[in-house]
Amino acid sequence: MMRLAATTAISILLLFSVERIAAQAPANQIPRAPDGKPDLNGFWQVLNTADWDLESQGGGPAPKEGLMLGAISAIPPGLGVVEGGKIPYQPWALAKRNENRKNWPSLDPEVRCLLPGVPRVTYLPYPFQILQYKDTILMVYQYGYARREIYMKKREILIDQVMGWSHGHWEGDTLVVDVTDFSAPPELREDRPPIGNWLDRMGNFYSESLHVVERYTPIDATHLMYEATLDDPKVYTRPWKITMPLYRRLEKNMQILEFKCAEYVEEMKWGDLRKKADK
């Protein structure tokens, strides 16, 4: 009887051990999956202003579209996450970035709930969940319908995608993700500029020839260091890097809720096309 109880206890322990590691491991210990690789399962989020501006910026009022929201929509100050401070734009590209900036918010894909691309999806101010099992690591973001499958075995690349194609491998305890084959923003109408490929709300941008190498390195049970190197010979003079921590969301009842922003932007996009009551 006691043996049976002990066996049962052990099997229950085994059953729950994987789940418990993340919650119970000492803070300095990296949780590990059964295969010995770091266990990234769980919820992650940045705590910074990178989505406002990858470079440093001072605080300020919202643009005219958000003025009525006062301090709620004011622009927060931030130290920036770009190694060396500035993005190494080619001269034409710097001019275009500055032009983009003048056209925020109307040309920012985030304003229209469009897919944010990589790496921007990582530092949007929303949580995301990582599921890690077998040959795929899945990242599901709260924002819109954004998600990524990171293939740990080579897949044939079939088309360009807004979120690119992500192939991953482990270098020691670091998950390295190679992201390629981004699409260019589609020209849906002749009378409108294509919208997409922005890195933040301040108009920093990339082209469809972007190549991103992301590195997710666990530094303890509740933090990952996130680095992304952006190489785009059409836009930058050299590859450059952003670095920021990802924080584990520890709430016991944590779950990704629906943030289906497609619905929240309809009045903005089509409000003037709603049928008006006859007077």
Binding site: R112, C113, L114, Y145, V162, P186, A262, W270
Partner: peptide, 16 residues
């Protein structure tokens, strides 16, 4: 079966 990105809003002009 290779699932591809479903860029729905990205290509949407039909409702407008």
């Amino acid at each position: 079966y290779q699932m591809l990105e479903y860029g729905c809003l990205e290509g949407d002009i039909s409702i407008e």
